[in-house]
Design a protein around this nucleic acid. Structure first.
Lengths: 197, 197
DNA sequence: ATAAAAACATACCAATTAGTATGTTTTTGA
DNA sequence: TCAAAAACATACTAATTGGTATGTTTTTAT
């Protein structure tokens, strides 16, 4: 990797970590500089301003890992979508190494914090959200064709419902700061999915 | 009402409106002062600092309306808890006059924004959340005794699942900024509740 | 090798922030 | 009525913020 690209990536990764733990607005540029050992000149060479860096975090860090964890499993799916959905949710909540109960889901955090006053952030995040929604809806519809899912089930409805549950349990996790809520949630999530058969 | 109490309430109400729309950290004290026409001296007479005002918003504004909209309906319940849960969710999402799709749920916003760095806020909000959870769980358990709900359903699981859905759909609403997601959510919420019979 | 461009470094600045110091006015209780 | 306390007003401050101006160093292409 070129050295300049390494600098940029270093900024993005460290900044992401800070923003994930502390929130975007309470993470100052000076703080990013001191943890990256990058100077202000270098920072503003790579990013026009703070918000452009924020968008870059979404597009260059969140988006790719989101693709791998949230979309790929659903797209390559041939078998039972309900089992798949549960396994995916279990993996994301219980086995993901980046996200913690205490700090929730980066995408969700960003949404909550930025939606009221930054259109660009919201648009970028809405893109991710919509992709996930569509992938779930499609998987459910395919499941209907393969006899895994009842015919009167609506894929889009399920997708919105599942997404809501995910955003919500992440939020709740931050509040109670204990993985046990994830377990409770997953139990009922399984029951819910079974009710779609 | 005493004049001093009116000043305090005025600050809290206007500050709440600003915080709800713009977020807590991006709402400056100076901004609160200019919209309330209250001077800094008066503000700091009533509140030790900004965070104490934030806590007061939770305890003196959010909590009471939360009691009325989220708890009372569940506690005074004798009939079908599943119908009640749907009606309550419908009322909160579609008919509440304070909350909008664009700005979501104040309690949820607070949680997301403050959890990473303010213990007091989180504790206060966790109190509200737990009360709601317990009220839902109790209602479901009573519903089991009255034959409205299947015996193998777990009240606490349902409560966590319902709460998650609510937090989540509020978050999603902010993202897409369109009430139609509420409608979609409610449809599936109804199906889910029916599956508990 | 060398000029030009890319990449980075340092010192600064204007604006905003929460909060304080020090007043004045208003209310209250005896 | 009148002193004391409550309630409010004004001017200020120290720290932090995102961002810029102006450099120097490093890389790249010829």
């Amino acid at each position: 990797m070129k050295k300049a690209a390494a600098t940029r990536l270093n900024i993005l990764q460290k900044a992401f970590e800070l923003v994930y733990v502390k929130g975007y607005q309470t993470t100052s540029i000076d703080e990013i500089l001191s943890t990256t050992q990058v100077t202000k000149g270098a920072f503003y060479y790579h990013f026009k301003n703070k918000d452009e860096m924020g968008i870059a975090i979404i597009n260059e860090l969140l988006k790719p890992t989101f693709e791998i964890n949230f979309l790929e499993p659903l797209r390559n799916l041939t078998g039972d979508p309900l089992v798949m959905l549960y396994d995916m949710m279990y993996g994301i909540l219980m086995e993901n190494e980046v996200m913690t109960v205490e700090h929730g889901c980066p995408a969700s955090n960003f949404t909550q914090e930025m939606a009221p006053w930054n259109v660009d952030f919201t648009a970028a995040l809405n893109g991710l959200s919509n992709q996930w929604k569509q992938a779930i809806a499609d998987a459910v519809e395919r499941g209907k064709q393969n006899g895994y899912v009842r015919q009167d089930v609506d894929g889009e409805q399920v997708a919105v419902f599942v997404l809501s549950g995910y955003w919500g349990i992440r939020n709740m996790g931050k509040l109670v700061n204990n993985e046990s809520v994830y377990v409770t949630y997953l139990q009922q999530f399984k029951s819910y999915l079974e009710s779609l058969r």
